[in-house]
Amino acid sequence: MKSTLKLLAILFISSLAFVGCSSDDDDDHDGDHDHDHEEINILRYTLTNGNDVVTLTFTDLDGEGGADGTFEVSGALSANTTYTGALELLHEEEDGEIDNIGAEIAAEQADEHEVFYITNITGLNVTTTDVDEDSNPLGFNTTVTTGAAGTGLLTVTVVHEGKKPNDGTVDDALIGTDEGPGSIDITVTFSVQVQ
């Protein structure tokens, strides 16, 4: 009985030691990375033609869940006009500090990403003008041409680890790479007016 008690005690102590070890594990992660933000809470697509600037902004500062995001379109696009389009993907902190995740992606992980622009407005065309290091389309910089007046939808979609090059459709990109299928990291649809 005495030896049993002893064993009990030893096991109890060793179990405490286990707990100790495991708590330390969590701390291993600290310091390994500088903690940049993963979550993008602002998407801004700016179309510029001289002084004619139209911004399409999606803002969801509290991230996934919580309050719904808001859509803001600064105005209508002019018909039969060519715009230069620039896409920004940002993380804005509560204190207003902004982390430009889009710039980071374009600089470091361009080959893993591609931006697609999809619209049902007749005559509206979005052409990608930038490329990744493999000379495949990237999509942060675009040229947008408008046709006749009309209204409709414009979707900005970022595919992560998609097939590159592809036939220009999201579906084809989603087939993915050797590692796995592509996934839609961002998809935001704006109501757009051309007049």
Binding site: D171, L174, I175, G176, E179, G180, P181, S183, I184, D185, T187
Partner: peptide, 23 residues
């Protein structure tokens, strides 16, 4: 399973409507 790791509900719809795995 790689092909089960999805983005949003639209990816899910694509998976449901395809008899073969996407990947």
């Amino acid at each position: 399973l790689s092909t089960a790791h999805l983005g949003n509900v639209n990816n899910l719809v694509r998976a449901i409507n395809t008899s073969q795995p996407i990947f």
